[in-house]
Every structure is written in C-alpha cells, then in structure tokens.
C-alpha cells in the first residue's frame, strides 16, 4: 500500500540535508514497523521519496513524503507513533493513503511551491514589490556550474503569485508562489529574492532571510 506523509521541518532540523532526512525517516519507519518495501535489483533501496527537495536552512510546514509498505498502517495512530521516533523539529502532521489519481511518484506531479519569506533592509516593500512584479520581464543571469556558462532568463513566468503580508520599517514578510515543475521550470526562493534585492539596489548579503515553505502544489 502506498501512503503519503505530510510533515513539518523546523528548529534545528532545518540544517539536515535532503539525503540525511531520508535516512532519519527510514530509521523511524523501521522502529515503528512501517518498514518500506525495497526495490528489486542489484542495489535494493527502500521505496520512499519526497515530493520536492527542500534547501538546507529552509523551514517547512508542508513537506510530502510518500512510501510503500506491506505493514498495516493505522492512519489515526501512525503520526504520533512516528513522532515518538523522530527528533524534535521533525513532526508528522498527517498520513493518508496515496490518491489513486497519482500513478507516478508525487515528484512528477509537482507544479509549484508557496513560501513565506521574512527579510531585512527593504523599505517601502509593498510599493517596490509591486513595481518589481509590474516589469514586463524580469531578467536574471543563471550560471550553469556544469557547463560553466552564464545564461540570461526571464524569471517572471516562474513567479506565480506575490504579495506582501506585513511590513514594518525595514523588515518585510511576503508570500510568494514559485514554479517548481518536475521538468525543470524551477525558481528557487533564494534566486527570486536575490533578483528582487538587485532590483532594489540593496546588498543581498543584508537580507538575512528566513524562508518557510508553506505548501507544495501538485497538479
């Protein structure tokens, strides 16, 4: 049976990388006897995967992890059982049966993600964010580490929604929904923020952003 877990990643756990996180969950599964099914093949690996990777240092209240197990899972008690074996800062909020309509991995249905960004040193955030978004195109130079080349792309189509929640003095809280499709139309919130700071003419190093993923949007 395939299940999906929705969990949050906060506190110290924001510093745990994607790969390490999978191991933490795998051990929690083993301790609660929800052992995932292993793939066949030369190097068997547990059938579990995240819908969307989360950058190191980001908070999240809505991560999705799917896994397949032969064990009987009680959807009511499973979250608290798992939480008993997860470190503080990782919390399973819900577990549900993977909907029939998703035949492939959830990652292949990923469309976008919504973030809350808190950052510093931007005055008049609402006005400036509106002006920024009103541009015809928003160009950003993307450096490809693989090819060693720079490429200029228009990131405006990748910004699906943008709004200031609160601002006080130089601090701003905003919500932003960014494209993140499986086929690579992805804008990372840090890249978005850097582009906005460049537009404002403010040193991005002063941003000290706190970035929290609020939602993963699937097709």
């Amino acid at each position: 049976m395939k299940y999906v877990i929705r969990f949050s990643k906060t506190d110290r756990m924001i510093y745990i990388s994607h790969l390490d996180l999978a191991d933490v969950f795998l051990r929690a599964f083993r301790m609660t006897n929800m052992k995932p099914v292993y793939s066949n093949g030369f190097n068997p690996h547990p059938k579990m995967s995240f819908a969307m990777p989360l950058s190191l240092g980001f908070y999240s209240f809505s991560e999705l992890l799917e896994f397949e197990t032969d064990a009987a899972v009680d959807l009511n008690t499973a979250p608290s059982e798992l939480n008993g074996h997860l470190p503080d800062g990782l919390r399973v909020d819900a577990i549900f049966v993977k909907p029939e309509k998703y035949k492939k991995t959830l990652a292949s249905y990923a469309k976008a993600a919504k973030y809350e960004i808190i950052c510093d040193e931007i005055y008049d955030a609402t006005a400036r964010l509106n002006a920024y978004y009103a541009q015809k195109e928003i160009l950003q130079v993307k450096h490809s580490r693989k090819k060693g080349t720079d490429k200029t792309i228009d990131i405006k189509p990748l910004i699906l929604d943008l709004a200031v929640d609160k601002e006080f003095k130089n601090k701003v809280i905003m919500f932003v929904t960014l494209s993140a499709t499986a086929d690579g139309r992805v804008l990372n919130p840090t890249d978005f923020l850097r582009s906005f700071y460049e537009y404002c003419g403010v040193d991005f190093a002063l941003a000290a952003p706190t970035i929290t993923r609020l939602d993963i949007i699937l097709e």
């Binding site: 510093y15 745990i16 990388s17 390490d20 051990r27 240092g57 997860l86 470190p87 503080d88 800062g89």
Partner: peptide, 18 residues
C-alpha cells in the same frame, strides 16, 4: 541561528539526535 547558515554541513553542530 546566525552562524549555522554560513558553515558547511551545519548538521555537525546542532545536536538533537535521537
């Protein structure tokens, strides 16, 4: 909070393990 984002493999310093 202010120093961990600046270092490599911050998971080394956070504790909080099972």
């Amino acid at each position: 909070k202010s120093i961990l984002p600046l270092v490599e493999r911050p998971g080394r310093y956070i504790g909080g393990e099972i």
